[in-house]
Structures are given as C-alpha cells and as structure tokens.
Write a protein that binds this DNA or RNA. Structure first.
Length: 431
DNA sequence: CATGCCGGGAG
DNA sequence: CTCCCGGCATG
C-alpha cells in the first residue's frame, strides 16, 4: 500500500517542483485517497480534466513526469517511508533512472505504451496529470497498471510485525559483529534476488524491485542505521522462515548459501570482520548479474546481509552454547568435525570459508581464540570446520548442542526437525 | 539410563 | 523418495 502512496507522493513532489503548481496542497490527501482507493482519484481527475490541458509545456512535462512516475513507482517505494532525506535521495535516484531510461529506448517504450493504453486519460489529462487531480487520475491508471508488478506490496504489511520481532535479532548482531559477517553474505543474496527479479520481469519492474532494494540499502548506508522499511521487510521474511517454519529454515539456509558460496571465498578474510561490509561490497563484483543495477549493488548488498545475519545468529544461537567446545574438540579430533553436518555446514560454509584459512595454520588453538573473541567468529569457525574435514571418521561423535528431542521433548515430536524424527543427525540444531 | 545418530528396512 | 526403527556409541 504505502508503496503506491509513496510513489504518488514522489510524483506529486516532482510535479510541484517542475511546474510549481499551487494545487499541490492536497497532495497528502490525494495520495492517501489514491492509495486507499483509486476510484476517488479518478473522479477528481474527471473534474480536473480542464486543468489537464494547461500548457503545451505542461504536456511535455507530463510526459517526463509520467516516465518519472514509472520510475519512481518502481524505485521510490522503499524510500517513501523514510523521510525528507529519503525523498531527496529518491529524487536523485529517479533522475538517474530517468536518464538511464531515456538513454535506452527499449526500456522507455514499454512504459509509454502502458500509459497510452491505460486510456487516453493521461493524454487528455496528460498535462495536468502531474500537477494535482489530473496527476491523481493518471496515477490511478498507473496504479492499476503498476499494481500487479508491485504485488510485493501485500508483503509490506508483514514487515511491521516482523520488524518488531526481528529487532531483537538484529540488535545483538549489531552489537556483536553484525556488519562483519553479514557484509559478505549480503551481497550475494542481494544479487540473487535482484537477478531473479530482473530476469523474470520486464525492465520496468526490474527497476522497481532492484531500485527499491537499492534504495533501502542506500538509505541505510547513508544513515548507517537500520531503521528502514525495506530492512524490516527483509527481516520479516527471514524471520518468518526461521520461526514459523523451523524445518523450512534449515532447508532454506542451505539453499541460499549454496548459491552464495562462490562469492564468499574472496571476502572470506575474517580479519575484516568489523569492516567487512565495505571491503566486500567493492569486491563483490557479483553485480555482474545485474549490470544495469550499477549503483544499486552496494545497497542491495546490505539488505541481504541482514538476512544472513539473522541466519548466522540463529545458527550461532543453537551452536553457541556447546559449539565452541565442540569445535575445539572436533578440530583436535581432526576429521571428527566433518561428520557433523555436511548439509547445513556446507551451505553455511560459504560465508565461513574464510575462517578455515585461519584455522589451517593451527586447528585447535584457533578455536579457543575464536571462542573468546566472538560468538560469530565461533560460529564461523564451527561452520568452516566442516568443510575442511571432508571425511567423517566414524559417527558424528554426537551432537553436543541441544537437539530437537531435548528442546521440544518427546511430547512435541511434531516440532522436531525431520532428521530428528527419523533418528538422523539433527538438521535444525547443528553443532 | 538418556541421548544422538548410522544403517537398514518398509511403504 | 519419505517415514520409520534397531541398535550402536556416547555422556
């Protein structure tokens, strides 16, 4: 919902800037109305039709604005939440986008078509559109059009909820090492998401999605703060996966990591932990996937990181208690570590890989140091260890951490991870 | 004894 | 494949 509103607002904002029309005042209401129900907007539009045909100049402007609209809608959404600063950012971004779009005819054509197709309305209103009512009307048309592409909006509502729940996770991560570990991973996710989205959907949409993400990321970077609608959104998703579907989480984490695995190696260097994000960003050429993204990449990265962070934390939570000792033990044992969780560990390993290097020098000692240092580092170490030891000597030795059985008890066997139910190595609580 | 997990089996 | 369990190894 807000997404639309935001786009609209931006649109209006632009219009006002460009044309300096006085009608802007109603923007807030208009916008809201538009968001809530397009119909009202249309009515206004019909009424305002007169205004539409103000100036030839206006028309040209309207065209630009329309373009902007498309762009803004795609990109602005995330920012909308933020505030003026964000708006500014949006402006800039929008300008950038427009420029890029104008450059490439292909991209442009589709949007234009749409606008026309909607109904001559925007043409008629066209000039006025940008301003006020007309803009609403036109926007209304857009909305209907854009709505499908933006369907992500539905998800939007969830963010707030997730945000709250998610916060706890986040805070710890921040305090501890959040940025470090997340940094490397994030980029990957981002890219993945972006790439998938981009590839699948038409250019305009792509823009939206990517942009939004990017924007959120940017905002984040600038502010250095987390408070971002986008972030919340991401977190929410993650969280849902994690909490709601415990099993799902295990499965989920592995999948994404696998993809990521390749990129992480480069960034892997643990030392950078504190500054990892920055270093990684540049490194993560992953952008290759999304060349058009260009500036976006950096931003997108941050968002993903959040997700990964959560995962990390989660894993760490499970692992932390016993994991450290286990890691040391495993290391000493040598191959033993391997046994523990090929599946998850491998997936996670990506991010962790770097740690292995550290360990290589001294298997045992490192574990201790890590334990002292940070939980995350520990986690990393643990995770990393598995990859190293390829062959499991005998059994897993025995998971030290709490397993589903202990956690949920025989009573709630339903809640156990499948592996535990099958009497297999627990997948949910990896050691 | 309780637990974790491998190996193997049934559908 | 999923779903189990016998039985070993461990603490």
């Amino acid at each position: 919902m807000w997404y639309f509103c935001t786009s609209t607002e931006l649109f209006l904002f632009f219009a006002s800037l460009q044309q300096s029309s006085s009608n802007g005042a109603p923007d807030g209401q208009k916008v809201e109305g538009g968001c809530l129900s397009p119909e009202p907007a249309e009515e206004q539009r019909s009424t305002d039709g007169k205004r539409v045909s103000r100036d030839s100049d206006t028309r040209s402007v309207s065209l630009l604005e329309q373009k902007r609209k498309v762009v803004s809608s795609s990109i602005d959404v995330p920012h909308a939440r933020r505030s003026e600063e964000e708006v500014d950012m949006d402006k800039v971004t929008a300008a950038m986008v427009l420029t890029s779009l104008s450059t490439s005819p292909l991209v442009r054509s589709p949007p234009v078509r749409v606008s026309e197709g909607l109904s001559g309305s925007w043409k008629d209103n066209g000039s006025a559109g940008p301003f006020t009512p007309s803009s609403n009307s036109s926007s209304g048309g857009y909305w209907s059009w854009s709505a499908p592409s933006d369907q992500s909006n539905p998800s939007t509502p969830s963010p707030p909820l997730s945000a709250d729940s998610f916060k706890p996770f986040r805070v710890p991560s921040l305090g501890g090492v959040g940025p470090g570990p997340a940094g490397p991973e994030d980029p990957i996710l981002d890219e993945q998401d972006g790439s998938s989205l981009l590839f699948d959907e038409p250019i305009p949409r792509k823009r939206k999605v990517n942009t939004s993400k990017d924007m959120s990321l940017v905002g984040r970077n600038c502010d250095s703060d987390l408070s971002d609608g986008e972030e919340d959104f991401y977190y929410t998703e993650i969280k849902l996966n994690t909490d709601s579907v415990a099993d799902g989480l295990s499965s989920l984490s592995p999948a994404s990591p696998s993809v990521l695995s390749p990129p992480p190696p480069p960034p892997s260097p643990l030392p950078s932990v504190s500054q990892l994000p920055d270093s990684h960003k540049p490194t993560q050429p992953s952008d290759t996937k999304e060349p058009h993204a260009g500036g976006t990449t950096p931003l997108s990265r941050s968002a993903p990181s959040a997700l990964y962070l959560i995962h990390t934390d989660h894993a760490y939570q499970a692992t932390a208690p016993v994991s450290i000792p286990s890691s040391s033990t495993n290391n000493s044992a040598g191959s033993a570590s391997t046994s523990f969780t090929p599946t998850n560990s491998s997936s996670f390993s990506i991010s962790w890989q770097s740690p292995p290097v550290t360990f290589t020098g001294t298997t045992v000692s490192p574990s201790k140091s890590q334990g002292f240092g940070d939980q995350r580092s520990q986690t990393i170490a643990v995770l990393s260890s598995p990859p190293r030891a390829t062959a499991a000597l005998s059994r897993k030795v025995r998971g030290e951490g709490k397993k589903c059985r202990k956690v949920y008890g025989m009573e709630n066997r339903d809640m156990w991870c499948t592996a535990c139910r099958w009497k297999k190595a627990c997948q949910r609580f990896t050691d």
